[in-house]
Design a protein around this nucleic acid. Sequence first.
DNA 1: TTGAATTTAGTGTCGGACACAAAGCGCGTG
DNA 2: CACGCGCTTTGTGTCCGACACTAAATTCAA
Lengths: 246, 246
Amino acid sequence: MKAAGKPAQVHFAYQQIADEIEAQILRGDLNPGDQLPGEAELAGQFGVTRSTLREGLRQLESDGLVHRPSPRRLEVAVPQADQLTTRSGRAMALMKVTFRELWQVTMMTEPLAARLAAEHGTADEINGLQSLHAETVAAEGMMKRTISLDEDFHTRLADMGRNRVLGLAREPIALLLFRGFEQIAPFAPKFYKRQIEAHSNIIAALRDRDADRAEKWARMHIEDFWRGAQIAGLEDEIALNPRALS
Amino acid sequence: MKAAGKPAQVHFAYQQIADEIEAQILRGDLNPGDQLPGEAELAGQFGVTRSTLREGLRQLESDGLVHRPSPRRLEVAVPQADQLTTRSGRAMALMKVTFRELWQVTMMTEPLAARLAAEHGTADEINGLQSLHAETVAAEGMMKRTISLDEDFHTRLADMGRNRVLGLAREPIALLLFRGFEQIAPFAPKFYKRQIEAHSNIIAALRDRDADRAEKWARMHIEDFWRGAQIAGLEDEIALNPRALS
DNA sequence: TTGAATTTAGTGTCGGACACAAAGCGCGTG
DNA sequence: CACGCGCTTTGTGTCCGACACTAAATTCAA
């Protein structure tokens, strides 16, 4: 059992470059927003060719540690949430997680999100949710649109809670689960109404700053989802074929 | 509002290559374990030079979609959990999340993990936990070692629950939070004992397959952690300077 | 037939080269 | 003197060709 330091398998130059720059960023030598030198200069610094350096840069880029606002400018970035969402979502899809797994976790995250939102959400944000909800009501029966609006509703709810960790953790999970609604809806048409009821009760609870009630309705909302999955016989089905992510 | 398809900003050849191969994997044309042709051949297929192709490969590699078991062999991989853990952990560290944020989420994940473990854990796994626990008892007072063992305990507990989504979501969060113990321990020496008590109660609950009790003790365990953070005055402190991730 | 020696193929790296676009510059005109 | 337009410079994306080194494949010997 060794300390969790860097694995020493770094004999490839491009890997060393990526590691070194990563270390500089994590160490704080380079801060988000800082601009990096041109490729030629960097290559010189590291004593490698541009080709080799570029391979290292590609790696950092796809790690989200650097990015190019303009083709001319290479700067240090803080990893963006949506990028992590994509990666996690892809991983979960490829490991063929089931509805049950997604649901079990969502049963925790969404109620917590609702609770925190009730505690920290601003009036403006609540109004925003309200108008989003209005759109949802108008879209009753339109599956794709409903799914997209639902994702949005829950994401905004989570953002209102002022907890970035929760936001990061729940996003890919909620995305996959809610998308499963596509397979459920045909079996349970009345779920549109129940969803609308739940959402409006959550909003009402937020206005009253009633964290308990918000949490309770969120829980019921997600429980409903599970009943739908059961009706559709999806409990242990794979949630999503990866291609749907694209 | 357009469908969530790929943004069309794919004028760079290396990007197109990465996207194309990614699509083939997601679409199922390529399955985990499949071997890919050599670089020369691939380059030919895509009509680019090896240099360009390699940049695309580096990107896929760091996305965890392909990897090289031997330098000679390039094959399709399913993204590994620890890779995602690193990425998420790094992101959270760079966005300077607070102890409070980490703790709020952990208050949900660990009790759920304990509950699921009580429902699905095998006798073997429980015995494994038991011996790990014995090590922890022996390490009382040794901070670094205690932290590492604690991380391990909770990770194994989560794995016992047969929920990969929970495992994926909680790992980076728990890692960051538990590591904060380093800053707490000096202020609250008796926490070693409370941790030992909590862990052994969880194990006992697992043996009885008492999900409620397991969940309860996990919750108390994490609550303790929060009290420690309060004593140390860390509630809204940044959990970790990124460098500690290395 | 099995093991050792040798060929072969493929990766990692190098160096140089060119087109194209953006950033910086100078110039002429109002 | 200020402003806009075209030119130069700089840097990225891509290509080409080459070579060392090592792991896999093949041949050869016992």
